[in-house]
Simulated scan of single mutants.
Amino acid sequence: MKNISIVVFWVMFAFSFLYSSGMGRYEKICKNGDSSACAIVGVIYLSGNGVKQNYIKAAEFFKKSCNNRYSEGCLGLGILYYYGYGFAQDYGKAKELFGKSCTSNNIDGCSNLGLMYAKGRGENQDWAKAKKYFDRACSGGDAKGCSNLGLMYAKGKGAARNFKKASFLYDRACELGSSAGCSNLAYLYAEGRGVEANYNRARTYYKKACDLGDRNACANFSVLKSK
């Protein structure tokens, strides 16, 4: 099954190339106090779409946005600290920023915060807190939050092992577009854990995960085609 993974980027990042054409306009709007515009400029510098990638400039605009309590700005700045983009890696600072983002109901921030507690990054590992934040992210419609919460139930980390509960969460994650959720659900159907063994359904979900870019799922789908 797929391991817990961090939410690195969000919708604005995926569409930053659309925003880059109006870079000057967004910078001007940001200077006039629009926190969302500051976050957009930060994303453009982070992605390097239409401009030269510049983590320092990204941090500058994310900080302006976050200081005005805009959750996407805090999320973006947290990602820079988490990976050490532009300055020294600092898990403690990343956790603080993800926490601010989550407090403002940003589900990606909650999901990332859950990951840090699950991995023990920034402080000691805490599965109870990881579960709390993954659950919050999943309830808000975050695919990776659902997938990671399902993995906790499947492995019995922070909760009693419950494959049926895991299957429900993987199914939700898969519907929300998580390749890991689809692949993990396929595994449960192939092995008959928490659900009745069903190779047809296993193939269906491996195929879906494959279509979402999971190469291991593509290989598993090929293996199951003969069964």
Rank of each mutant, 00 (worst) to 15 (best):
Y199N: 13
G158N: 01
N67Y: 12
L115Y: 15
G141H: 04
I6V: 10
L18E: 12
F87T: 14
V41E: 08
Y206D: 07
A94W: 03
K208C: 02
F17P: 09
G150T: 04
L46D: 15
C210G: 10
I40F: 00
C38I: 05
N112I: 03
S104A: 15
N106Q: 09
Y55K: 07
G109W: 01
Y205R: 10
L80K: 04
M1R: 13
Y187A: 13
R121G: 06
S101W: 04
F15R: 12
V7K: 05
L75Q: 07
Q53G: 11
S179C: 05
C102E: 00
C102K: 06
F134I: 02
G22D: 15
D135L: 09
A180I: 02
R121C: 06
M1V: 14
C174G: 01
F17Y: 15
M1Q: 12
V8P: 02
V43N: 02
A217W: 11
G192P: 00
S71K: 13
K100F: 12
F163P: 03
S178K: 04
W127L: 15
A14P: 04
E196M: 01
K208V: 01
K95W: 07
F87E: 08
N198T: 01
A186S: 13
C138K: 01
Y153F: 12
Q53Y: 11
L169R: 04
M1Y: 12
I107W: 02
S20G: 01
V51K: 06
S101N: 04
A209M: 04
K227C: 06
N106H: 09
M152W: 02
F17L: 09
K165L: 08
A173C: 00
L77W: 07
I107E: 08
A58D: 06
L188H: 12
Y83H: 09
K93D: 06
Y55I: 07
Y206K: 03
S111P: 01
S20P: 10
Y170V: 02
R136S: 09
